[in-house]
Design a protein around this nucleic acid. Structure first.
Lengths: 335, 335
DNA sequence: CTGAAAGCGCTTACAG
DNA sequence: CTGAAAGCGCTTACAG
């Protein structure tokens, strides 16, 4: 790879001037700019981003870190796509870390990303009191939280109205006559699930249905948990007439368990999932689901990060997007 | 963040010595090592990876680039997980670029990653004669191709036996009496699909069924293409009795089109997909599919890249993994 | 408007 | 075994 020095020699100016041309310094004369640009083109020069990043933190070519809980979850894939879409348009590079809800792994990525001098971070914190992320925020490294916020500290966040999303789903089930509604949740250390739980309870309240703790199951957020919890639910003496599952992967796991028992959806049990998937319509049966705008969330987070980098002092923002209940065929009215 | 200088002052040695301790230089005396390590711990010093990378290309803390065609395709998500799993264990960081089968985007990522001084690259080339990647290989930047190789140049690759995978699927369909089998393929610029096509043809040959070009459809590799092509297929005057779809997303799109027309699978049409998904069993009906070991491919590619970095002169390898036909319920025998 | 020089945080011959 | 110094490829005050 050619470097500044080569370009400088080729166009017979100093490396300082070449650097200024690259950075669009308006003080450089038009003539010089042209000359240098010709050399850059001739030598196919590309600035070394590593050197740029080492030298200064406000060059145009940023490096973003993106840390997500589970890339197997299609919702986070949408988030990644959104972030990446914005990054691509703005000539950013993005480093991705997938921590699988493993706290040690999240911490390692935090360390690595800092060592890589990232210009900013988008992260779905493992829980609300994540010290590692708090520290970054305190150090004034630009951070935007996605899907989940932080409880102890003020930070930019973009998420969805989880409470309302869950409320609408449960409300719909209750309107159809269901009273025993199981909730397959993720771990309640994750703020998202606390909020979804709260929506669940509020809907019950509205309909005067007493809350039954034995109907709530919280474990991990993966496929296997969904499968195993659903198995347990199906064995319950007084089987619930409906299931509300807390995320994509839990839903898919639950579906497998239900199908394995040859139980008919929705005739024998109704199910609504939090998170929609492009192929929800091809599931058996087409799945009624709470849609989150993952792509938009990702894009918005990247945009907010961009603004935070440009203007570190600006007031922290809290963006809450809407969910949408996608009615399909996995629920039915009961008497 | 503290730096070498701070540690050096704290332990009263030179920065050179601190650097040697970090890099496990055996020449440093045991006593000094202990002293310096204490300072490193006290100051919570973490080496700056950017400076390391700028200074030298053979430090332990590598940066890997990973460029994939479509992160919405669960197969590539598995690949990402595999790569990331290996990287995590070896303290590598990985940058991901998702190019969506867009050649310009692939090229931009190639440029950015080079500017970021990556230590090596894992990539699924957009087509077999990808000049950009050829150039990297020629420059002796470690590259491992995944899922697809390069035709003009010798390069490490890990992929699957696509021809055999497709052959087995079509053979299965032919054994069940199907003769008109439509093939929903991705673009034939992509080597993977050329190979799958070849397996399709060989199976027909084996059974003495003449090849009918009008049954082969190749467009993009996304959900929408699968949907639209399937619509066309269903409108065909003499409708095929079976569909073989070339990847996950094409399959899911095709399923949506079939369900939208209320056509029963497998009674009215059989379907086999290339690529399996964890939730294939929950599709309507449970999908018969050709399974590729995406996670293993990713891990293997990362491992090979690691070896290539350690030993740039070593002979190029061509690893071919096996597929497995997962028999479920989306195909049926016809008379 | 342009150049010489310092410096970002490291590593690595070279010398002792 | 250890340190002083050069240098990786840049940016940016400072001077003119």
């Amino acid at each position: 790879m050619s470097n500044l020095k080569a370009v400088a020699e080729h166009s017979k100016v100093s490396i300082a001037t070449v650097s200024r041309v690259i950075n669009n310094d308006p003080k450089v004369s038009r003539e010089t700019v042209l000359k240098v640009q010709a050399s850059i083109a001739a030598l196919e020069y590309k600035p070394n981003r590593v050197a740029q990043r080492l030298r200064s933190s406000n060059s145009k070519t940023k490096l973003l870190g993106l840390i997500i809980p589970d890339i197997q979850n299609p919702f986070f894939v949408d988030v990644v796509r959104g972030v990446e879409d914005y990054a691509y348009q703005n000539n950013f590079a993005v480093m991705i870390g997938n921590f699988g809800q493993d706290e040690k792994k999240e911490k390692l990525y935090l360390d690595i990303f800092q060592s890589e001098n990232i210009d900013g971070l988008i992260v779905a914190p493992i829980h609300g009191k994540d010290k590692g992320i708090e520290n970054l925020v305190k150090k004034n490294i630009p951070v935007v939280c996605i899907d989940r916020g932080l409880t102890e500290i003020d930070v930019d966040v973009v998420k969805v109205d989880n409470e309302l999303g869950a409320f609408n789903a449960i409300d719909h089930l209750l309107n159809m006559g269901h009273k025993r509604i199981a909730f397959i949740s993720g771990n309640f250390k994750i703020p998202t699930y606390i909020e979804r739980m709260s929506g669940y309870k509020k809907a019950l309240e509205k309909h005067g249905v007493p809350f039954d703790e034995s109907l709530v199951f919280a474990r991990n957020t993966d496929y296997k948990s969904g499968f195993e919890i659903a198995q347990k639910i199906l064995e319950l003496e007084q089987r619930p007439t409906a299931i509300f599952s807390g995320n994509n992967l839990l839903t898919l796991g639950a579906l497998e368990a239900i199908h394995a028992e040859n139980i008919k959806i929705p005739e024998e049990i109704s199910i609504i999932g939090f998170d929609d998937m492009p192929w929800s319509i091809s599931l058996n049966p087409p799945l009624t689901a709470v849609r989150q705008p993952g792509f938009d969330m990702g894009r918005k987070a990247a945009e907010m990060l961009y603004e935070r980098i440009a203007n570190p002092g600006k007031k922290k923002e809290n963006v809450i997007l809407k969910t949408e209940l996608m009615l399909r065929k996995s629920t039915t009215r009961i008497e």
